[in-house]
């Protein structure tokens, strides 16, 4: 029956998510109080806050993919990105704010992978919000301990001759991996190349798609 809630399962057989009928936590209460005060004192407006949330939600991995495609096709840009990643990406309109950015190019003999063991540092200006697994204790603790096993679970199996280099994003830097350019992509323009660049390939848990 469509409205029979007795078994608490959706038509697809999954349990319904329970309503969050619990009291606010200390920090939730504090956030609401500060936000309401800022609005009341006309330091900001509810519309400004909603706009910032929209801007945060609008950032996504296609921005990082454009950076990678330019790195593959424009040697001058590649040099500039390696020299000062924050500046090179800011000039593309992807402002990282006060943080710095380091680009980590893979090579046939080197595979880079990024983790933040202490929290969840992530290049949000290029990739948007991090996936939930990036913030999980399992990913954060296992990636520094057994990166090849973690990579294998993402479908990436590397030969022993390829060095795996883990980057623990512990302080003020943010990292983007530049995946290897796939074979047989010589004739592709930047837009077509960018479409091959996945989010995971820029975290280091994946590789770029082949066309």
């Amino acid at each position: 029956m469509p409205h029979d809630h007795a078994d608490h399962l959706s038509p697809s057989g999954h349990p319904y998510r329970p309503d969050d009928d619990h009291p606010l936590s200390y920090w939730q209460t504090l956030e609401i109080a500060v936000r309401e005060l800022l609005v009341e004192k006309e330091i900001t407006t509810a519309a400004d806050i909603a706009e910032q949330i929209d801007a945060m939600d609008a950032r996504n991995p296609t921005m990082g993919a454009q950076v990678v495609a330019r790195y593959w096709t424009e040697p001058e840009f590649a040099t500039a990105l390696l020299a000062d990643g924050a500046k090179a990406t800011r000039e593309m309109g992807f402002d990282i704010g006060p943080m710095k950015l380091i680009a980590l190019p893979n090579r046939p003999d080197l595979h880079n992978i990024v983790v933040c063991t202490l929290c969840s540092c992530y290049p949000r200006n290029l990739l948007g919000l991090p996936p939930d697994w990036y913030k999980s204790r399992a990913y954060r603790s296992r990636t520094v301990r057994e990166p090849r096993k973690v990579l294998a679970e993402f479908g990436v199996t590397l030969p022993e001759s390829t060095e795996v280099r883990v980057h623990d994003s512990t302080a003020d830097m943010r990292y983007i991996v530049i995946p290897n350019r796939p074979a047989r992509t010589e004739g592709l323009d930047q837009a077509a190349l960018a479409a091959l660049v996945t989010r995971d390939s820029m975290i280091g848990t994946g590789i770029a798609r082949t066309p």
Binding site: P147, R165, V166, H167, D168, T170, D172
Partner: peptide, 29 residues
Amino acid sequence: PLYRVRFTMAEIWGADAETPNDTLEAEIY
């Protein structure tokens, strides 16, 4: 100053390292 320091997995994990010659880099003040 903030240093990026490179370690070998053998240095960090000793005999338990998954692949001793793999490396790890971290930012250390």
